[in-house]
């Protein structure tokens, strides 16, 4: 099993969610996060003076899938979160040792 963890633009959450949903990936976790990458900061203005917010709001989308589905999910997120500008985000894939469904106690692929 693999955890796909994508940091994306807040404005792209709907698109990513809908694209995943269409391909049958319904379960996911979304967290509002703050971070920075190559986008660095954005300029804002406070009473006529510029300031920089260099830790920007992003959204983290997490879902755990079977190994063979990981590439498909990654592809879907990459396409649906894409704008072509700095700040589009990144996708991280990490192996997952065990998954347990709390309600039934099932574990492994059955719990996904």
């Amino acid at each position: 099993m693999i955890k796909v963890e994508a940091i994306i633009r807040p404005a792209k959450v709907e698109d990513v969610k809908n694209a995943l949903d269409k391909a049958g990936y319904v379960s996911l976790t979304i967290t509002e996060v703050k971070g920075r990458g190559q986008q660095k900061g954005i300029k804002q203005v406070w009473r006529g003076r510029e300031y920089v917010v260099d830790i920007l709001p992003k959204v983290k989308v997490e879902l755990v899938v079977n190994d063979e589905k990981a590439d498909e999910v990654t592809g879907i997120i990459q396409q649906s979160a894409y704008t072509g500008n700095f700040g589009d985000g990144k996708i991280f894939l990490t192996p997952v040792q065990k998954v347990v469904r709390i309600r039934t106690g099932e574990s492994g692929a059955d719990a996904l």
Partner: peptide, 30 residues
């Protein structure tokens, strides 16, 4: 694009509740 981001930053350059202001004044480099 502006509509999805919200009008605050594109039209006014600030958000209503500007938190997480990490950097100080604009130094012209970033």
């Amino acid at each position: 694009e502006e509509e999805l981001t919200g009008l605050d930053i594109p039209e006014h350059g600030t958000s209503a509740y500007p938190e997480f202001v990490i950097a100080g004044p604009f130094d012209g480099k970033r």
